[in-house]
């Protein structure tokens, strides 16, 4: 595993991606809690919905996008590291039944 420079680079790249992913996760946590302290200062009703709630919806949308990005990065970092014996056990998601709606391969790094 430590033999070639390519291996070392890819390993470092995976670690970096995983680190950035978890860093984004912390950002989501901090912004998610932190915005509660400032959002209540927004007043007024717009279409029957308070201004602070409009702002909060925008914040939650942004946080969800960040969460998606973070999860993708972490998954990319974990996928190669987690090559395991049970990878071959996955039956995948096939057939026409509603519960199998297009799942993909077992080691998903593309989330």
């Amino acid at each position: 595993m430590r033999g070639t420079s390519t291996d070392v680079e890819s390993s470092a790249d995976r670690s970096r991606r995983r680190l950035v992913g978890w860093g984004l996760g912390i950002v989501v946590l901090v912004v998610g809690i932190g915005h509660l302290f400032v959002v209540q200062s927004v007043t007024g009703l717009y279409w029957g919905i308070p201004g602070w709630l409009w702002v909060q919806l925008a914040v939650l949308g942004g946080l969800l996008a960040l969460a998606w990005l973070a999860i993708s990065l972490i998954a990319g970092g974990d996928a190669s590291a987690a090559s395991t014996p049970m990878d071959g056990n996955s039956s995948g998601s096939v057939g026409t039944s509603p519960e199998s709606d297009g799942g993909s391969s077992t080691t998903g790094g593309d989330a």
């Binding site: 996760g25 989501v28 946590l29 998610g32 809690i33 509660l36 909060q56 919806l57 939650l60 946080l63 969800l64 969460a67 998606w68 973070a70 999860i71 972490i74 998954a75 974990d78 987690a82 395991t84 014996p85 049970m86 056990n89 996955s90 989330a111």
Partner: peptide, 27 residues
Amino acid sequence: SFLGLAAVFYTFVFASVGVTLYRIGRE
């Protein structure tokens, strides 16, 4: 507020602990 915030946080739990438990279940 707390329900919406929690729903965002769930994504990390599903993607981390959920994936781990999925693997353990298969293994």
